[in-house]
Write a protein that binds this DNA or RNA. Structure first.
Lengths: 308, 308
DNA sequence: CGAGGGGCATAACCTCAGATTATGCACAGA
DNA sequence: TCTGTGCATAATCTGAGGTTATGCCCCTCG
């Protein structure tokens, strides 16, 4: 226990004292601290008793600091200012060191997390702050994001982009589902199955209707049994045998490798687009963000995705 | 509210942090702070969350400070050391300014308090710490007493003394008691009355037995109805009409002036001793103590005591 | 002069921040 | 393998610090 504590049993007394001394008013200090005036009155009395020092002269309509009070106020304020400066500068340094990345929930859960251990092992000093976002069109600068992913052609103003993985979408279901309801020979057969779909509020993605139309299947008779709010939900329902979902090839790779999902039909849809790694152009990148970007690219998501 | 508080909601977190950092052990810090280990664990976690800084590396059998932790520890310790130094020096100065005086309870209540307002008006900057003591033979240096009173001849080793008031002891009772039980013509009459006596454990004072013997009254038939543990008790009982007490002339002066007590018999006993103001010879007196001594002497307790 | 307002002090009572107890996990060492 | 050490976590408890109500002493204004 620091010896200061024998003089000031609660260091919070000093927070209260500093406010009352600065404001020269217990009532004003109470407002500032969001407590009642008697709480301040009592706390100051406790501090005066603990130290044996008379810090204020109470003069009915005026509160004056004694000489001791003045001295303690000055020193307390300086100590607090200094500690604030130290913590702030440590935070600033820390903030500079943390890489803030933002991806869809499905990407984080299905692709990134299973591989993150590798990145951590290669770069133990890089801290990632991983945010799951429901939108692709975030303003990277405004939201203080160092790196993200976006589907498109890679040409966005104020953005540096690196091609990451081709958009390729294919049906997936669990082995049990296929055994029980299969086989499926052609795209038109899908109309007789439970199709798991998702619609994201802020992100346009290929759904069953478009997929079938691109495979010349009439969709008048399409019914959608379940609609999830993100891709992750629909894929996990497929894993649980509840139907056939559309999966992005790189996202379902691990499930397929593990045998939890199969591809019931070899038809896939390639949009010609790709998912790109993006970083803000307006400021120099953090070293950790560069390392993460490089690591992402070298994962070669196209090569490690299952062949269609 | 100081901005530090937005970073560290409770300054007591820093007490806990400083101890854990110094000891490099939550368990040891808990012992030092007289709390449990989980309390320290939780508090450090709260501090880390509040600041966003990782302060310790937990390594199972070793606790290490991070670089941030090291920096914060160093700065916190310096701030606390400094505040401790400031408060200590203010206390030292304050201690030098406070005059510690020690008297019997009867003197404090019956003589000093009714007159203290005058001293305060003349010396508003002198602070008195007034202790009531049950003994005359205190070691002034050891008990850090600046000034006291002692009955005797004024010759004590290591003590400076100033004659204050003659010891003169006389019977007193309330006017009502005298009307109801009087008159009293000679000392021997007292044997037929309720005599209020006191015996102090550490202080020898004249009691009824000695007083009567010195007035050649046979004391074989003396009975003592009440025995108090200090003079104050016996005098206050007399004021309440419960009997006749022995009073030191200077102590009962105010009661007599106010008509609360009367002197039923003009016989008084003068021991040849006096009460002396005493101060320790081993150290230079505080200015305030000198002022108080001078003020006591100029009260001229002998002159303001009632004539016997 | 009286009324009203402002501000600190005090007492009785309340409540939640910080504490405890019990337990788990991961080491390290014998 | 077993035992001991030390930090983490969860459920629960409790007392430090807060609230509400009130009082006292000013000061100002009509």
């Amino acid at each position: 226990m620091h010896r200061l504590r024998s003089l000031v049993p609660s260091a919070n007394y000093l927070f209260c004292f500093e406010a009352a001394a600065r404001r020269r008013s217990f009532t004003a200090a109470a407002q500032e601290l969001n407590v009642s005036q008697p709480a301040v009155s009592k706390t100051i009395r406790l501090l005066e008793e603990a130290t044996g020092l008379k810090l204020f002269r109470r003069e009915h309509t005026r509160l004056e600091l004694t000489a001791e009070g003045q001295r303690l106020y000055k020193e307390t304020q300086e100590a607090f200012d200094h500690l604030h400066m130290v913590i702030s500068s440590l935070q600033q340094k820390h903030s500079n060191d943390v890489v803030r990345v933002s991806f869809s929930a499905s990407f984080v859960q299905l692709w990134l997390l299973p591989r993150l251990k590798d990145f951590k092992a290669k770069h133990p000093d890089v801290s990632l702050r991983i945010e799951e976002s429901s939108r692709d069109d975030q303003d990277l600068v405004e939201e203080d994001i160092d790196l993200s992913a976006r589907l498109g052609n890679g040409k966005w103003p104020g953005i540096h982009s690196w091609r990451f993985v081709t958009e390729e979408v294919l049906p997936v279901c669990s082995p049990d589902y296929l055994r029980e309801h299969g086989p499926i020979h052609e795209p038109a057969d899908l109309l007789r199955h439970t199709l798991l779909n998702f619609e994201e509020r802020h992100r346009t993605r290929l759904g069953w209707r478009e997929w079938l139309e691109r495979h010349t299947v009439p969709v008048a008779r399409l019914k959608q049994d379940f609609v999830f709010t993100d891709a992750l939900g629909s894929i996990e329902a497929a894993v649980l045998g509840q139907g056939i979902a559309l999966g992005w090839k790189h996202l379902v790779h691990d499930h397929i490798q593990a045998g939890r999902l199969v591809v019931p039909l070899q038809e896939a849809y390639r949009s010609g687009h790709a998912v790109h790694i993006i970083m803000p152009a307006q400021r120099p990148p953090k070293r950790g963000a560069e390392l993460f970007r490089d690591w992402l690219i070298e994962q070669d998501a196209d090569a490690s995705a299952p062949q269609s």
